[in-house]
Write a protein that binds this DNA or RNA. Structure first.
Lengths: 146, 146
DNA sequence: GTTAATCTATAGTATTTAAGTATAGATTAA
DNA sequence: TTAATCTATACTTAAATACTATAGATTAAC
């Protein structure tokens, strides 16, 4: 039960954009280098994130990408939901028709509840929250002399 | 982010065993027929569930399988944890060494928290709870004249 | 003590999905 | 006009999942 690399790379890319929010467009190549993720793969992830209005882009030289909304208005849950192919723990949650048992299946309700618990947690965390976490992490390390 | 069929079939098998708890050994073929799941696949799932002391078996004719503990002492979380290959949302939660970033990775903590939220939910549900849900579901249907 | 019904163990295959790569094209600042 | 960037789509490879097959061990019933 792993998240796909799409979600994980996508979240790291969005966090990178948040770290450079309001500093002009960021080239995809920079993000890829900083985060050690393949350029071509990130290019694919950007498409749905643009459709979902999380990223806006500028073409041509000096172009790049930016958050389409402030970091406090974007949650990790939204990013994962956008990039993950199926967002629930079982296919029958999204498409009850795919299993004729779904109307009377006890386990189905369990997977639904567990999916919800996970997404509630992910939706409670914004990119802004993560920037704050980063700040306090760095402060902690400097206190330790690291 | 789907659960594997292992977890889903395994949970349905355990629920079937709970429904026949204290009525002697249940043949794997019966479960497979009732639940419409392949015999050979279930045979594989039984092995780790026996190791985890959730199932005990009797060999030979008239043999079969039973819950090794009462339904109120077995949670869905335990079943899923036993059958799922990797139980966390990211590999780096179980093996921090697999990624050199793990010590300073902000997203890693997020996946850890979300995994926990999901497992807390799954661990809060016992097979006994599910038998109760079944009872009230049936009562509801008979009230509707179904 | 033979038989047949059951579980046990391991190995093999086939399908699907995920991850990553390649190519060609569109846009635009300089 | 050029070169730097994003955009779109198609392809390839690798890994995991789901399932199947074969051979063997155990034991109740006769």
């Amino acid at each position: 039960m792993r998240l796909s690399t799409r979600s994980r790379y996508g979240t790291r890319m969005m966090l990178d954009l948040a770290q450079h929010h309001d500093k002009g467009p960021v080239r995809i190549g920079e993000i890829a280098r900083r985060q050690d993720m393949p350029v071509k793969y990130l290019e694919q992830l950007i498409i749905p994130l643009k459709k979902g209005n999380f990223i806006k882009s500028v073409r041509g030289p000096k172009g790049g990408h930016m958050l389409a909304r402030p970091p406090e208005e974007i949650t990790v849950g939204q990013i994962v939901k956008t990039l993950e192919s199926g967002i629930e723990l079982a296919g029958c949650i999204e498409n009850p028709g795919e299993c004729e048992r779904s109307g009377r299946c006890l386990t189905r309700g369990i997977w639904e509840d567990a999916s919800k618990a996970m997404y509630d947690k992910l939706n409670s965390i914004t990119l802004f929250n993560m920037l704050e976490m980063e700040k306090s992490f760095k402060m902690h390390c400097s206190n330790l002399g690291e």
